[in-house]
Design a protein around this nucleic acid. Structure first.
Lengths: 356, 356
DNA sequence: ACGCTCCACTTAATCGATTAACAAAAATTA
DNA sequence: TAATTTTTGTTAATCGATTAAGTGGAGCGT
């Protein structure tokens, strides 16, 4: 068990002071006028013994950690793990490490996690926030720690965020279904006031209103513990509304569980009922019939989030400027949503159908 | 921008020494005989000002970080993100935080990540190792830092690992297919010498040998950059071997891409070709027909990994004892793999068919 | 009254870096 | 030659905790 070598060990070995070593290590050799000779001696020795600076000590002294804390709802959800992967990869090229954790949408757990991150002096935060953590976020902002939201935001707070055009996504979904002959379009969402869910519902409502239809909405309980129950609840909903000929699911896992429900009811897609999911799933095109979806631009979200964060980190003043970027969604049309029957198809000039 | 309050600030405020505060904070009040009066004063003040100890300073002094470094191949892969989620959740209850990163199976990136983790003094490692990092792992072990492998291991190293019975998984898969009337069973895997892939291939080979069949194997290139190409390669393979009536895919994403290939070739499952995937996918039961799979016990793996790590962390001597745990797999039978035709089904006494 | 034991804390070194302030020697200038 | 500047480093404080060793006083026995 050889013990780790510190900057002082090196200093002693080379008959120099720790300060000198530090200067060479941190590229301050010019500024501090360290002789070429000493520079070489130091670098050579460093390489020879494989010295690795202790980042903990460095963090303590500088107050910086080169770590970014990332809080997502659930790291095993394809949407969040996809974003995480992208962000990690980009940040890695900028010498930042990412510290992930799942909030499970639990306010208390999230507070604990934020605390843990603070204790570790992470330099910035990327977060899909649950509600109820407004105070903790405000404390961060007051201390000039950059915070970037994604997927959703907290309306009470003026933060930087990267979101998508949820409203338009739902709106497009409804229009697409209507253009393909469906009229009794239901919307199945969660009983959540989170901004992204709210916007999706609003988009649906507006589209229905614009076409003089009454909305048909199911709000399922939000808690993770009910995820397994989602399938049954969807079944109940379909049974109780047999006028329905199409369903838009407001999130990934609702779509998955909804599909199970539909299958178990023996309904055919898209003959009996059409389906559109929010959040594309890599595997939606393997389902039979493959599922139409409102796809989020995962890569672009990751890009934009990191860019904003790096920007805020690099510049004290810049970090004060908050801005919200709204990225467009794309309706990925597959055969689960058209046509109801060949005869009833309504071709319009909608961009969605340009290539159809 | 209120600055953070330190243990010395508290000491000054209460006319005590930093040491006393530290003792109270760390439950050493009894041992150090701190008066009831002082204890209360300290705890009350802590609570009042919301003091949070600086873990960076603590780590520097103690050499411990309460952080576990976790290296997986790809955090966005359902298998790895599922395990990660489980491990994170369990570790959280034991006051450990997890530091995730994706190796992308890149030896150099992995070395860099291990270095970054070391610099941060993580207390232990959980890893699905790529090959080529043997020296780095050995260095960790020499320094008594616990390392637990999962999914695979490095044969040259005597480490603790949690793996599954890959050999048996493949064997069962072949047997299951044969019992349902398939005989020309191909195995599509990656050109990788990683232990888990190797064992899967061995299990397949043995099963084929036992039934006097010659193996039909495709080894696709391993690099991630070829993932998109996997679909085309599978198509080629199927075209060139038209005797095939069943395929076992050695991993999750091969199965996904293979399914696309099969669909695009216009082949029907299971009439023209049967399919079994390694690694169950949550959504396999939604495919039509739903896909039979060799499922890994995600929860148990997570449990076992954390348990071993905590054990090693708690006890210097214990951490020297390495042990490998092999967990059983389960064949999840769905209608993608049986029967070829009713008439040809061969019912045997195999446990797999006991309930069939 | 003297030594001795407890009690209830405090002092100060330490972990491994960074960095402002200082300093000895060499080079330059007047 | 004496004064000044430049070069090339060094010293020591600091970040915020932990912890071995120390200390002043109360209590007690004889």
């Amino acid at each position: 068990m050889k013990k780790k070598i510190s900057i002082h060990d090196i200093a002693k070995e080379l008959n120099l002071s720790a300060a000198t070593i530090s200067f060479v290590l941190n590229g301050k050799a010019d500024e501090k006028k360290i002789s070429e000779d000493v520079r070489r001696k130091v670098s050579d020795y460093i390489k020879k013994v494989g010295y690795q600076p202790n980042m903990v000590a460095k963090s303590l002294r500088t107050g910086k950690s080169n770590i970014i804390g990332m809080l997502v709802e659930d790291i095993s959800d394809p949407f969040f793990s996809g974003i995480s992967r992208g962000i990690e990869s980009i940040a890695y090229h900028h010498k930042y490490k990412i510290f992930f954790a799942s909030t499970e949408n639990d306010t208390e757990k999230t507070k604990t996690l934020i605390k843990a991150f603070r204790e570790r002096q992470v330099d910035g935060y990327i977060m899909a926030p649950p509600s109820g953590v407004e105070n903790e976020i405000m404390a961060l902002m007051e201390d000039n720690v950059p915070v970037i939201f994604f997927d959703r935001y907290l309306p009470a707070l003026n933060t930087s965020s990267v979101i998508i055009d949820n409203y338009s996504g739902s709106y497009q979904a409804v229009k697409h279904l209507q253009e393909n002959g469906y009229s009794n379009i239901a919307f199945i969402t969660l009983n959540s006031e989170q901004t992204q869910m709210h916007a999706r519902l609003q988009g649906y409502n507006k589209a229905m209103e614009d076409s003089l239809c009454g909305p048909i909405v199911a709000k399922l309980p939000y808690e993770l513990s009910h995820r397994e129950a989602a399938e049954k609840l969807v079944q109940e909903f379909i049974k109780q509304h047999h006028g329905i000929d199409a369903i838009i699911f407001a999130t990934n896992y609702l779509a998955i569980n909804g599909l199970k429900a539909i299958r178990d009811l023996g309904l055919a897609i898209p003959e009996n009922i059409a389906v559109i999911g929010f959040d594309d799933n890599t595997h939606f095109n393997l389902f039979s019939p493959s599922i139409t979806a409102v796809a989020q631009p995962i890569e672009e979200i990751a890009q934009e989030v990191v860019q904003q964060l790096l920007h805020a980190l690099s510049d004290e003043k810049e970090s004060k400027k908050r801005r919200t970027v709204t990225l467009p969604v794309k309706l990925i049309v597959r055969n689960s949503s058209f046509p109801k029957t060949q005869k009833e198809v309504v071709h319009t000039e909608s961009p969605v159908m340009k290539n159809g």
